[in-house]
Write a protein that binds this DNA or RNA. Structure first.
Lengths: 231, 231
DNA sequence: ATGTAACATGATTCAGTTGTCATATTTATT
DNA sequence: AATAAATATGACAACTGAATCATGTTACAT
């Protein structure tokens, strides 16, 4: 990806002394807060430097533009979320169990980091390329794990990428409805519904035709019909 | 809803002659295009009136602010999408069939109205209240239909609202992945996966009581908290 | 202690933005 | 035709916010 080279974004000058490091951090913390509260477009650089308690010129010492500090925060967020979910899910066995726990962990994360999460919602408008990188990279990883689970026979065999997007959508929208909008966990009834939907949707270990694994090719007439002229 | 009174938004002055009507429309069309291309925040009123070919003062004859013309477009879009999906789905019988066709119709709509769809993505940041109205109203309707299908035994009984958000998420994310990002319909393999996920996730008519003995009961371990279906 | 690179400042410049208003034209009404 | 109401104009006042830069101030290696 041209978006990110190595582990560093361009447009960001890392400080070289501990004094600079402190200022750098102050700016990032301030930016996270203000972006989270008012959104990217409603936030000015002056808002950020005011909250950080530094002068305007100082900002441009470390970030080339407002967008650059935003990007930096987003990449940070991406790693944080993954770490959080990964950690919660690691000790469990079986894709379904991981999937369920992962959804709850994701909801928790939203509740505990509303500000950071809001950044993510701005991302699509601020930098579409980075946005695609964000979800694309998420999906890729997700699909890999799903693929493995399919091989192990833990879930039904199908297109891992499509499945990944289904699951991300499900996570994001339920995370929006309760944690984000109501600022509390999804009620038990909703969780139960979601879990069942996941369980049946993914397919249980013993579920499928006991027969041999299907031949990886699509187009087996099942639901078949494409909607529109598919160009 | 305080957002919308009757069928008209405040901040909008409808024209009173056919000449005015033409100008009004020109402005709306121009706004749809520019918003779609550059996004709400990157678009200025000057951009809009330039494309519409009218003077700046004319804009303020019909719209109080930039936000007001945006809101007007969004409400319009909401009705358009619903009409499109409704129309595609109406002749079909059974929730599952409707659900499948609805997803394809939704994807079609995105392909045919990329600009309008993009507005929607901006909405969350521009006017959160209207955004919640948008999805909330969608979800409410959706849940109502799902509830009816449950009563008829067409799909598994569960919390209709939670299910509605799952399905919306699934629609939105798959619509993003292929129609929006790649500007073409989802490939057959992906559609098949999505359909199967829907089919199993929603539960088939004959599913419930009969069928192979599911030794697997839900609620163990992580799922933990059982709750009666409240709301 | 001194030289130097890093760090910090904030007034200022500059490129935009919104929204208004006096003026002019068109349309509907009588 | 006369009049009022609606529509259109574009210059402009008033404002916003990003980014710069000349002028400092620290920290630290030598």
């Amino acid at each position: 990806m041209s978006v990110i080279n190595g582990n560093e974004l361009e447009g960001v000058n890392r400080p070289k002394t501990s004094r600079g490091e402190a200022t750098f951090r102050k700016l990032l913390e301030a930016a996270e807060e203000v972006f989270g509260e008012k959104g990217y477009y409603e936030t000015s650089v002056v808002d950020i430097i005011t909250r950080a308690g530094v002068a305007q010129g100082t900002f441009y010492l470390y970030f080339k533009t407002k967008k650059d500090i935003f990007r930096h925060l987003v990449v940070h967020l991406h790693h944080e979320i993954r770490k959080h979910v990964q950690l919660a899910v690691a000790p469990l066995n079986g894709r379904l169990a991981k999937e369920k726990r992962g959804l709850l962990a994701f909801h928790e994360f939203i509740l505990q980091h509303r500000n950071l999460y809001r950044l993510l919602r701005d991302l699509e408008l601020v930098d579409e390329e980075l946005f695609k990188w964000y979800y694309g990279s998420f999906a890729k990883n997700y699909a890999r794990r799903l693929g493995k689970a399919m091989e192990k026979g833990e879930i039904r065999r199908s297109d891992p990428e499509a499945l990944a997007y289904c699951l991300m959508g499900l996570n994001v929208f339920t995370g929006m409805r309760w944690p984000l909008w109501e600022n509390k966990p999804a009620p038990a009834g909703a969780v139960e519904t979601i879990f069942t939907f996941l369980e049946k949707g993914l397919g249980n270990p013993g579920d499928g035709p006991a027969g041999p694994p299907p031949k990886e090719q699509e187009g087996k007439g099942t639901a078949g019909k494409r909607g529109t002229g598919d160009s």
